[in-house]
Amino acid sequence: MNKLKDTDIQATIGWVLRTGVILSIAIVLFGGAVYIYRHGHDIANYSTFKDESDFAQLTGIINGILTFRGRAIIQGGIILLIATPIIRVAFSAIGFLFEKDYLYTGITLLVLLIIFISMLSGHTG
């Protein structure tokens, strides 16, 4: 019985991961096409790090997507990609809860908490 439930969780997790990757890559490709079409002949320079975080904060990215900026769309896809394994962890927590495996529900929530702290530390530090 327990084993059957485990395979259910595995199937769901596999689906979450595959869908997340396909969707985010499609968005990145689309944004990339827009960006190359508009800025393909600009001069690229990445030799030094510039502290212009246009696409580091969510508000900047959303504004960019609304004004149809290629790089903002790419960044939206990248954020979805980064979110994919995190969503996978959240799904695992629900799965363990359904199995009444409270030890692993706790362990999974702890992992989510660490990632959450990670998000906050990037903001303030």
Partner: peptide, 25 residues
């Protein structure tokens, strides 16, 4: 690996280290 990388990627993202035009290709 995916979760591990995501945990540090959120920090890099907010620091502006993830450049969309460079990451895309």
């Amino acid at each position: 690996i995916g979760v591990t990388a995501a945990a540090s990627a959120v920090v890099y993202l907010q620091r502006g280290y993830i450049d969309p035009a460079l990451s895309m290709p």
